[in-house]
Amino acid sequence: MNILRQLLRRLIPMFSIVVIATFLLSLLMRLLPGDPAAIMIPNGTIDQQIEIAKETGLDRGLFGYYWKWFSDVFTGDFGKYYLNGGYRDLGGVIADTLPVTLMLIIYAQIVALTFAIPLGLASAYKEGKRFDRITSTVMFTTVSFPSFALALIFSLIFAVNLGWVDPIGYVSPSENLGEHLKLMILPVMSLAFGLASGYTRLLRTDVIATLKDDYVTMAASKGISNRRVLWRHVFRPSSTTLLTSAALNMGGLIGGTIVIETIFVIPGIGYEIFYSIGARQVVAMQTLIALISIGYVFFNTMVDLLTQITDPRTRERRA
């Protein structure tokens, strides 16, 4: 009951934010100079353009168009990506590209956490020692290293100079798993690098605070080995912030993969956005950007809610 009320209290603002954001997006799209239908198929005939304007609701004015788009998306019709003399169904495009992007993001998260957890624990344990100072400095420096610069430098070193992997391309895992993983190494590394630094810093801060708790001294004085104390007694309570931030990053990363996908020519949702902007596909742009912001808001709301359920201290007083 309590949780249900909390859920509602979050879902209503979330829903209104999504509605207003997508409405503003369609307003933005209507600001494009010229007739949007003509922009979408510049070489099409007038009849084709009129038909498209009718089909997308572009002939109905701003509110009519938005309502048409909104109700279509709500009923599962995501619109079309128009080509000269044909179209691609956006629902299909999303079904094809979203898993690729999610895979990329999940790989990056796994790699980042694999590096960040031991490093964060070790550098907190050795707080102030040389190891910690070096790790902290390196992490502070690399956290802000732009992923696209990293991507280009990686492909320069590993693909062009050393020739270990192909610089661009994508193979689906069902087709050839080995080749898939090999091609994903560079994009995943470029994304994971900055993430890992951020996570290490977060975990280090929390672990340092936890290490000062009495029960840790207690555990250590019982003669439990340091390694066990660190993993069993310290890591678990310290990992909340880390996991929250990892979950929050999911939404932001969908936007952040646009450049990486474009550099490595990976057919994900980011590449599709880039492509639809280049081709001035008004409807596709709106649907895909809306999808990303819905995902972003949804993730944030869910994480917020989950932390409240799991950690009673953060619950609102009144509820």
Binding site: G255, G256, I273, Y296, V297
Partner: peptide
């Protein structure tokens, strides 16, 4: 405005 990622 924050619900749409910067770059997008």
């Amino acid at each position: 405005m924050l619900s749409i990622p910067n770059l997008v």
